[in-house]
């Protein structure tokens, strides 16, 4: 018989918000939750991979349906829209491919995080698991999915003659920033959606609208110069461009990074305030 070597080594101290416990207690436990969440990587890794496997189990193509469906979308929409926007197809399809794949990652994280805790009810009501684990699981699920999607890029780049560039490394940085904002924003989304069950529907709607108002299918250059700067206030645009522009050999401007940093800062603040205050209530809302 093995003895348990727990990955979570600190004793479980659950203290309610009353006279004996004040602010620092709550902060400390919220912080411990996040640290233990990252330490329990085995849990979120296996759950995240399992989500992908489960979705495509028993299908012949398996998870490569992800790749196939994104390839079909890009081919179809790319052909139609390049005619519609009167863009040369060899420029438009690589653009659409990079933005759409990045968009799928961002929107996937948002939509999946609405059910992060609700889906984990069985676990959370049973065992003292860090809540943040289940946000990280959503990130794993969506980044694995992204890994399957990105397979179409080399093919498209070969067909349309987009050459490799050093700026590709900047795209990696962009992905890291998406992971950071995804964790923070996902946490906010997950907490609020567990408490208010109408929110998942609202957020799904919002994400659909965001697709059309963000430069995924259309290019910023097509806008009149007088309205172009409005794109900057859309945080989705900033995170999209941080990945898609470097892939096409261009570096996004400083304003893009500033906008992304501001978004991360704001979501970190909201996430911390909500998580600190309501972390222990989440399980009661399930």
């Amino acid at each position: 018989m093995a003895s348990i070597k727990q990955t979570v080594s600190a004793p479980i101290v659950a203290q309610a918000k009353d006279e004996t416990a004040n602010g620092p207690g709550l902060s400390r436990r919220a912080w411990i939750d996040i640290i233990q969440g990252f330490q329990s990587w085995r849990v979120w890794w296996l759950l995240g991979i399992g989500d992908i496997r489960q979705r495509y189990r028993r299908s012949r193509l398996g998870q490569f349906w992800i790749t196939l469906s994104v390839a079909i979308f890009i081919a179809a929409i790319g052909t139609v829209y390049s005619a519609l926007f009167k863009q040369p197809i060899e420029k438009y399809i690589p653009y659409l491919a990079t933005t759409y794949i990045t968009w799928t990652l961002i929107s996937g994280i948002i939509i999946d995080s609405t059910s992060a805790f609700i889906q984990a009810e069985g676990f959370l009501r049973q065992q003292a698991l860090p809540k943040s684990t289940f946000i990280l699981r959503i990130l794993v699920r969506n980044f694995v999915s992204f890994g399957h999607n990105i397979v179409v890029l080399p093919v498209i780049f070969l067909i349309f003659g987009v050459s490799p560039a050093w700026t590709w490394f900047a795209a990696l940085g962009g992905l890291v920033l998406i992971a950071v904002v995804g964790f923070l924003g996902g946490l906010v989304c997950a907490i609020l959606c567990t408490r208010f069950r109408d929110l998942p529907q609202i957020i799904q709607n919002f994400v659909q609208v965001a697709f059309f108002v963000s430069p995924v299918a259309w290019q910023v250059d097509l806008l009149d110069e007088s309205v172009r700067h409005w794109v900057i206030i859309n945080p989705f645009a900033a995170f999209l461009q941080m990945v898609s522009e470097p892939l096409l050999g261009r570096l996004p401007g400083a304003i893009t990074y500033t906008s992304a940093a501001a978004t991360i800062g704001v979501s970190a603040l909201i996430a911390w305030v909500l998580f600190r205050r309501f972390r222990q209530r989440i399980v009661y809302w399930l």
């Binding site: 659950a14 309610a16 065992q127």
Partner: peptide
Amino acid sequence: AYEPSRGV
């Protein structure tokens, strides 16, 4: 799994 609403 349940952190108490009151007490320690």
